[in-house]
Structures are given as structure tokens and as C-alpha cells.
């Protein structure tokens, strides 16, 4: 082993230690709890109980999927628009996308309560116009809105970064070969921005499917997502760590499966998978 590669290994050491301590070890702790009972004996009981929470899984996946689709539909035109304006406007738009990310996620979510509440901003305004208050807070719509709002930067940024790298001469070539604006989009821009779409979907779907705070604050306690179930059991005390770990493990496996499927769509297009 030569000196240089030893030096490289040394540089990687902090990261390796970090990963082992805070990723690998916790994973094994989770696995341990998932397959043991309160006394520490091996059991499959926890896994078998998962069926009880299939509604939470179903709702989580459904909401996350809806939120991801809405996010994509909003983010894609935004990212496209960002590549069309001049450089200084691009920077400014980028800032506008990024600024909310500087604020704590909890505060951002919380602020929606004051907007959507029965006596919140929107309903106060509607009341002034003489319109009956709308039921906004504590609805599935509010939960999905929260997800879209919180995670949309993770969709815009990878799509923008891939799209802005598309060679302008390719767009000219497609026009030259007879493409109108629609064909140019469908046959060149869309396929070439696919790696950005894939990574955006992953980066929005994964946190959405496992979130717990948004649903509690904006959905009332009516909608239990998987994240809420896990949080509930962990808060309920050490006796419930085993069930909570089992649910976490199943959720993780489901997310991994989703990611593998998504990555199959991005083929060997290695460009800009993660920004």
C-alpha cells in the first residue's frame, strides 16, 4: 500500500467514523429492536403486527405521491423559466427558492397554521368580504400543501441544475430539424432533463412519505401517517421501541425499493443525479 493512498484513507477517516457511529450503528440498533421483544428475545411478532398499520402506510404513500406529483408540476415550469432568464435574474430566483430553506422546517410549517386556521389569515379576509369561513386546516389538502411547500426546493434545484446544463446548440439543432416549440420540449428538453426529474422526485417523495410533523400540525390528529405512528410509539416509552423499529424498518425497505425503481428510469444518465 503506497503512501498516497494511505493519506487518502486518512482524509476519509472522519467521514467513515461519522458514518459508522451515526448511520451504520443506529441501523443495527433498529434491526435489533425490530427482531426482539421487550425482554430482548428474538421474535417476529413486531413484523407480524405491521398489518395493523397498513392504513397509515397507505395514506402516507398516497399523500406523498400526490404531493410529489403536484411539486413536480409546479417545480418543472419554474425550473424551465429560471433557465430562460438572464444570469442575474437566475441568481435572484435561485435565492427566492433557497431562502425558505434557511428557516427552520418546523417554523415554516407552523406559520401555515396562522394562514389556514379557522380564524386565520385567509378566513379573516374572506369574512371581511362576507364569505363563509372555509375548512382549511386539519384537512388532507392542508397536509399535502405543507409537503409541497416544504419540499419544493428539492424538486426545483436538481431540475434547474440539469436543465441549465443542456447545450443550447441541441435546442437549435432540434429547431433546425423542424421542431416547433412543442416538439423541442418533448423530444429534447424533457428527455434531457429526466435525470433532474428523477432525483427531484426521490428528494421530495422520501421526506414526504416519512414526515410526521406536517400531518400533526396541519392535519389535526385525524390523519395518522407512518411517521406519526413511529413517533407515537417512540414517545410511548421503551416498551414500544420494538414495534416502532419494525415499522421504521419496513418503511425504509419500501423507500429503498422505490428508489431502486426510480433509478432504473434514469438508466446510465449519470449527469447531475444529485445536485
Amino acid at each position: 500500500m503506497n503512501k498516497k493512498s494511505f493519506g487518502n484513507q486518512l482524509l476519509a477517516a472522519p467521514h467513515v467514523v461519522w458514518s459508522v457511529l451515526f448511520i451504520v450503528v443506529p441501523l443495527f440498533i433498529m434491526l435489533y429492536f425490530a427482531f426482539t421483544n421487550a425482554d430482548g428475545g428474538f421474535t417476529l411478532e413486531n413484523i407480524q403486527q405491521i398489518g395493523l398499520y397498513k392504513k397509515a402506510f397507505g395514506i402516507s404513500i398516497l399523500y406523498a405521491a400526490i404531493a410529489t406529483v403536484i411539486t413536480l408540476l409546479l417545480a418543472y415550469p419554474m425550473a424551465y423559466f429560471m433557465t430562460k432568464v438572464n444570469i442575474s435574474s437566475q441568481r435572484m430566483l435561485m435565492m427566492i427558492v433557497m431562502i425558505p430553506m434557511w428557516m427552520n422546517f418546523l417554523i415554516r410549517t407552523y406559520s401555515w397554521i396562522t394562514i389556514l386556521a379557522n380564524t386565520g389569515l385567509i378566513n379573516t379576509f374572506l369574512g371581511k368580504l362576507g364569505i363563509e369561513p372555509l375548512k382549511l386546516i386539519n384537512t388532507p389538502g392542508a397536509v399535502i400543501l405543507g409537503m409541497v411547500y416544504d419540499f419544493i426546493p428539492y424538486m426545483i434545484l436538481p431540475i434547474y441544475s440539469v436543465m441549465s446544463k443542456i447545450d443550447k446548440s441541441l435546442l437549435e439543432a432540434s429547431e433546425d430539424l423542424g421542431s416547433n416549440a412543442f416538439n423541442k420540449f418533448r423530444r429534447v428538453i424533457l428527455p434531457l432533463s429526466r435525470p433532474g426529474i428523477i432525483s427531484g422526485i426521490t428528494m421530495v417523495f422520501v421526506p414526504s412519505v416519512s414526515t410526521f410533523y406536517i400531518s400533526q400540525k396541519l392535519g389535526g390528529n385525524k390523519t395518522m401517517l407512518v411517521g406519526d405512528v413511529i413517533e407515537y410509539f417512540f414517545n410511548a416509552g421503551p416498551d414500544y421501541y420494538n414495534v416502532a423499529s419494525a415499522i421504521s424498518m419496513v418503511l425504509m425497505i419500501m423507500i429503498l425499493v422505490c428508489m431502486v425503481i426510480m433509478n432504473r428510469f434514469s438508466d446510465d444518465d449519470s449527469e447531475g443525479v444529485i445536485i
Binding site: 446548440s169 439543432a173 444518465d269
Partner: peptide
């Protein structure tokens, strides 16, 4: 009714 051959070819990578 004209077509262009671009300097760096501009072939579609996908």
C-alpha cells in the same frame, strides 16, 4: 428548408 451542421455537431446525447 435549410439544415445546419453545427460546429460541435450538436448530436442528441439521449
Amino acid at each position: 428548408q435549410v439544415n445546419t451542421i453545427f460546429q460541435r455537431y450538436a448530436l442528441f446525447p439521449h
